[in-house]
């Protein structure tokens, strides 16, 4: 049923495009932010939700994408080339981070990615010739296929196109042997070996694919912010992305998008409510507090995420069966 996925993805993208037109510059900014976060969340969901490899280095990987794209674009390269270059760089770095995963599992690997995040953040700060150090790399407005990308409104188009391509590509990937082998890996490496899956090969490919998508998202984020700085790609960003895929629903098809929209729009919503309530003095810590509390409450009361919550609201015949701690991905992909 890939046509159905394609239709849904295109419909969502068109809807987001319409929203960006309807709500002016701020609307375009928010739609762009959600689309970019959605791409990044799809990447992380591929790795954690499907592949079972917990990574805390997503923030730094986006940074790799942003710096690569910024350098290519500033040197006069076309925006499309910059985005693809960022993808390739992201894939390479992600595969490097994944190498310890060939020996380590679960918790130990998660801690290793924590180290990767710290080391990459440090490199962003000191590799002055490429990253312009702590002050950050200013990215000049780029042109994609000759069209200048001067505003959020023009950037929405490539973001949404890439979102659709990535979304459909991930769903396609999960229907072929390689994607299926990721699922087996997640459940048990020993079973995977027993089934004749080349574990090392599959793992590295998972990191490669996920890193490529993360690079794309990073490049788009760099173009949107016109700046790549070390403070933008910290562990906090990694935590945001993990929050997105858990809140959306680990290992589900729509979850990353729902989670991305939730995590990006929630602070804005809190901001509006806070301003209305006359709390603007302590708004930014209050926003953090509400965000943290919501994550905690979500994880306690609905660990399977918004997707599970929504499917429970559907009529019984359509509801996803079998509640379990880890959502059974086979179930959540439509047959």
């Amino acid at each position: 049923m890939n046509t159905r996925h394609l239709v849904i993805a295109v419909a969502v993208a068109l809807l987001m495009g319409a929203l960006s037109l309807a709500f002016g510059r701020f609307g375009a900014y928010m739609v762009n932010a959600v689309a970019i976060a959605g791409i990044g969340a799809l990447s992380l969901n591929l790795l954690i939700g499907y592949g079972g490899q917990i990574s805390f280095a997503q923030g730094a990987l986006l940074g790799v994408g942003a710096y690569t794209a910024g350098n290519i674009s500033n040197a006069g390269g076309d925006g499309l080339l910059a985005i693809l270059g960022a993808g390739v760089m992201g894939a390479i770095i992600s595969a490097l981070i994944g190498i310890p995963a060939l020996r380590l599992r679960g918790l130990y690997f998660a801690i290793a990615t924590l180290a990767a995040q710290a080391i990459l953040e440090y490199l962003f700060k000191i590799l002055d010739p490429i990253t312009n150090g702590v002050s950050g790399l200013v990215i000049r407005p780029t042109t994609i296929l000759g069209i200048p990308m001067t505003s959020d409104r023009s950037l929405v188009v490539p973001s949404l196109v890439i979102l659709v391509i990535v979304w459909v590509a991930v769903s396609r990937l999960m229907r072929i042997d390689l994607g299926r082998s990721f699922l087996v890996l997640r459940e048990s490496e020993i079973v995977a070996k027993g089934m004749g899956i080349d574990v090392a090969h599959a793992k590295i490919l998972a990191f490669f694919a996920s890193g490529f998508i993360a690079g794309l998202a990073g490049a788009l984020a760099g173009f949107a912010n016109r700046l790549a700085s070390p403070e933008a790609f910290t562990l906090d960003l990694s935590a945001d992305y993990i929050a997105m895929i858990i809140i959306g629903g680990l290992g589900t098809w729509t979850g990353p998008l729902i989670g991305a929209a939730f995590v990006v729009l929630l602070p804005e919503a809190i901001q509006r409510v806070g301003e209305a309530a006359g709390l603007s003095d302590i708004l930014s810590p209050l926003r953090e507090l509400a965000f943290g509390l919501l994550i905690i409450l979500f994880l306690i009361f609905e660990p399977r995420g918004l997707t599970a919550l929504l499917s429970r609201l559907k009529p019984r015949s359509l509801a996803v069966p079998a509640p379990g701690a880890v959502p059974a991905t086979g179930e959540s992909l439509p047959p």
Binding site: I48, I242, P285, E288, L289, I296
Partner: peptide, 23 residues
Amino acid sequence: APLVAVMMVTLGLLIVARAACLI
């Protein structure tokens, strides 16, 4: 809950504590 959710919830605690001290 899965390992990643448990790690995430402790990160959530960190965010809440930081915000509370900031306030």
